[in-house]
Design a protein around this nucleic acid. Structure first.
Length: 305
DNA sequence: GCGTTAGTGGCTGGTTGAAA
DNA sequence: TTTCAACCAGCCACTAACGC
């Protein structure tokens, strides 16, 4: 069997148990047989078998490879994924990626109907190296080119964490030059070098807490979060209700005229850019500093015509 | 074509939990 | 406490894929 075959089987097991916990071996077998019938119609190299012994080995391998534990409940007479795993974002992403991978593979003859976004690689080839450096607290060196500058600068930083925002990966670091927290997009980072020099992770620094009131990736440093009140027209409001701008989003008014929401965030450049993208479908009601920023930006844009 | 490797299925004994 | 059913894991043989 090809490697794709048994990896597909692992993911089918996870997918089934996520959708329906406490499946017996027979239920899993039936599900996998059905799925494999369909996959094999498109790819006859996918010769996937599934005996009880194979399931036992798969459970062990899934734990080794993906770190996801599958247990058996005697009272429910079935296998299940431990609850904490199904809530794990990595797990959700893995299942999504698998679905996407299989769909695109199966749909090669449907190419005219699938339009993939053409974008630059995300720089994920450095993920392993960066994770190694974060885990072992090694300083890193790299070359970096900002969007708004042609010049490439060389950086030496202490890597703290990786963060994703709008389909881009960033490394959160402390810059040795000025000791401030900075983020760098992986797709603009080159010549990565992991040094032998170790650093001490500041005990008081908590990345989750630090970015709690940030819209995107720009570090707030010492800035305090503010109450932000926005009013959207009803059409845009529907999108905002289904795709909230931030975890702190609360609905204040929801009627035929507007959707009014409150956010608790630091006013950073990435938040301003996001709000500007709504154009005249959104109005900032609070705070004054943000109203001024948005007004100035719209006025500048108006004067260009 | 041949040898090696890895995945799989089946058999078997040990373990565990529920029921009598 | 004993019995039974089901799972788990070790072992071995088979087979397909892969490299030379």
């Amino acid at each position: 069997m090809s490697k794709r075959g048994y990896i597909s089987r692992y993911l089918l097991i996870l997918k089934k148990l996520k959708a329906k916990p406490f499946c017996s071996y027979e239920e899993l077998k039936s599900y996998i047989d059905n799925q494999v019938d369909y996959l094999q119609m498109r790819d006859d190299t996918l010769n996937i078998g599934f005996s009880k012994r194979t399931l036992q080995r798969d459970i062990r391998e899934i734990s080794n490879i993906f770190g996801i534990d599958i247990e058996y409940s005697k009272s429910e007479k079935g296998y299940f994924i431990s609850q904490s795993e199904t809530e794990n974002m990595n797990f959700q992403r893995m299942i999504e990626a698998f679905d996407m991978f299989n769909s695109l593979n199966l749909a090669q003859d449907l190419t005219p109907f699938i339009h993939i976004e053409k974008r630059k690689p995300q720089g994920t080839e450095n993920l392993y190296g960066l994770l190694h450096a974060i885990k072992n607290k090694f300083q890193i060196k790299f070359s970096y080119q900002k969007f708004w500058e042609d010049e490439i600068s060389n950086r030496i930083v202490e890597p703290y964490a990786l963060k994703e925002f709008k389909n881009r990966w960033y490394i959160i670091t402390k810059d040795s030059k000025d000791n401030s927290i900075k983020s760098f997009a992986l797709d603009r980072l080159t010549n990565l070098e992991i040094t032998n020099k170790t650093f001490l992770y500041p005990g008081t620094y908590n990345i989750e807490q630090s970015y709690r009131y940030c819209f995107g990736i720009i570090s707030p440093n010492d800035e305090e979060p503010q109450d932000i009140i926005l009013s959207f027209d009803p059409f845009q409001g529907k999108y905002i209700k289904t795709l909230p701008l931030h975890d702190t989003q609360q609905i204040l008014v929801d009627n035929d005229d507007e959707l009014q929401i409150k956010l608790k965030l630091c006013v950073t450049q990435d938040l301003v850019m996001e709000l500007l993208s709504f154009g005249d479908n959104m109005k900032v009601l609070k705070p004054d500093i943000l109203i001024t920023e948005i007004k100035t930006a719209h006025e500048k844009a108006y004067k260009q015509y």
